[in-house]
């Protein structure tokens, strides 16, 4: 599943970024690296972009990019 599939309040662990080049590099530099936890905080009023919390800060990105980020859902216990 991808980051775009997580609903508000759900969290996951990043598995892989399917992007390449400068964009992938930028996401990695901002902390989107394999093994990191993310939680989807919010969806913008118009449905896109989304806000996620990662490495204790808030990052916003579009669903288009979120779809390229593979995650593993973390089920709440």
């Amino acid at each position: 599943m991808t980051l775009a599939d997580l609903k508000t309040g759900e969290s996951g662990k990043i598995v892989k970024i399917q992007l390449s080049g400068a964009l992938k590099r930028r996401l990695m530099d901002m902390g989107v690296v394999a093994g990191t936890d993310v939680i989807v905080e919010k969806v913008a009023p118009l449905g896109d972009p989304i806000e996620v919390r990662i490495k204790s800060y808030a990052l916003s990105l579009r669903l288009g990019e979120a779809r390229q980020i593979e995650v593993e859902e973390i089920k709440k216990s």
């Binding site: 964009l23 930028r26 996401l27 901002m30 972009p49 806000e51 800060y57 808030a58 990052l59 916003s60 990105l61 579009r62 288009g64 990019e65």
Partner: peptide, 9 residues
């Protein structure tokens, strides 16, 4: 373009 942005507190 792509939109990636940090939201400060």
């Amino acid at each position: 373009p792509v939109f990636i942005m940090e939201l400060p507190p």
